[in-house]
Design a protein around this nucleic acid. Structure first.
Lengths: 141, 141
DNA sequence: TCCTGATAAATTGTATACAATTTAATTGTA
DNA sequence: TACAATTAAATTGTATACAATTTATCAGGA
């Protein structure tokens, strides 16, 4: 019928949005004990890999802008996880790096991905397909 | 290596979360002209189908709680789209229904799903697979 | 009927998100 | 070298989200 395109069940956006929120909730029991929120966790994932990068670079990795990152990073600095330092090569940029405490947290976080995949009822192959499709969707956006 | 499980590229959560946010941004140019935010839009999708339901029911359809819905619905009521009314059968519940203006908005929204699928670089088959996987993921959460 | 437990919204507090603007620094160019 | 355009963070304002608590109402049993 005319309005079928507006049915909730016909919107791809809806399960995408709902699943993303539910996954974040799934992380909470594992992130609370190490004192991270979900967004702080994905920031840490990048920093554990790259060691030091600017707010700008962090933002393009994570699809987040300075309006989100600035207060988040200030909080993480206050919590002793990271250091924020102006780049002397280009004073417009702020370089984010890990403190020793931030580096050390990696060993506590290492259990999390395994614990989380246990919460997800997709087979390895399905998770792989989902991963590819989501990245395809992201790729050309 | 030991820390590979913590690489951003190995997290399913990350493209899921990022894609969800990007899709919401994609809606903005089409929702702005009809005066809806993304969350208001998905509320309207349910109301266009069901006509009247409680905040509780709306919340379980949309995976949203009263902390999110109450202020959102008050805003939509102030904007003249919906009516909030205590259920006389059970005074704990609030029944949400559409105003004439809310019903009329459906005809302006009907273009949106088509316009949006034009923004998404997945084939029909891929979108179908994604839909199934996301719902599977949601189903047992 | 009275009281206890359960339920639905609303409220409070915290944490994201992002658009738009502002501030400070840099770059390219006449 | 001035200076306009660009760039990176930060700021401001608005809108979600959700956990935890509170308030009002309802339901079931002694």
């Amino acid at each position: 019928m005319k309005y079928d395109v507006l049915k909730l069940e016909n919107q791809l956006c809806f399960p995408l949005y709902a699943a993303a929120k539910e996954i974040v909730k799934r992380y909470k029991p594992y992130l609370d004990p190490i004192g991270l929120t979900y967004t702080q966790y994905i920031v840490m994932l990048v920093l554990w890999e790259k060691n030091a990068l600017t707010v700008k670079e962090l933002g393009s990795c994570l699809y987040l802008d300075s309006g989100t990152l600035t207060p988040l990073l200030k909080k993480m600095e206050a919590d002793g996880l990271i250091i924020r330092k102006r780049d002397h090569e280009d004073e417009r940029s702020v370089i984010i790096s890990l403190t020793e405490q931030g580096v050390a947290l990696r060993d506590k976080a290492i259990e999390i991905p395994t614990k989380l995949s246990g919460c997800i009822a997709l087979s390895g192959e399905e998770a792989g397909t989902l991963y590819v499709l989501l990245n395809k969707l992201l790729g050309q956006m």
